[in-house]
Amino acid sequence: MKKTPARAPTSSNEGEKAFERGDKVSAEFFAITYGALVQQMVADLAQEEDVEAVNQQLDAMGRRIGSRLIEEYSVRSGAPACRTFAQAADGVALVGLRMFLNVTATVEPAREAGTDAFAIKFAENPLALFVELPEGPLRERLWYSNVICGVVAGALGMVGFLAEATFVRDTLRGDAVNEILLCFKGREKETFQVDR
């Protein structure tokens, strides 16, 4: 990992402290809830092949969740305001994912995807406890944890960053690691200020 040593430990510590400060619930309960929801969405598909619709529903749901969590992030994380895309990517990967999902992630620029793209990688995924995807359309096309991408994009959108987050690797599909590609598209001219 090619990262500035002075920055990563600080952000990681902030994420850990933020997680410890908050109320916590069982990761198993969280995973079971999410699993029941995804299962219901798949069961509701009019066409069994239309798995992309579930991906989109999970993303939309995540955006709504992210737009609510960002306020708590701003108030409780202790992280400084992000002024650059790199700082925002750090905030997501090293503070946000740790604070809310208790996930240890790494972040690095993804040069091949453009100057404002970052690869966020994490080995453990609390949403995917107890989950195996069957061979077929689900394993090939479902990004089971796509809600995380929506949360990230939704939260960033509330603080003025236009971003797209997409899964590019998933351990449920047999990949070695979970990887989200975070691409910044620009900034809103006016940003929301969370006053409290």
């Binding site: 908050g22 109320d23 990761a27 969590l69 809310f100 999902l101 208790n102 453990e124």
Partner: peptide
């Protein structure tokens, strides 16, 4: 993993 996530999420 220590088996916990944020209550908010």
């Amino acid at each position: 993993h220590n088996g916990l996530v944020s209550e908010s999420v």
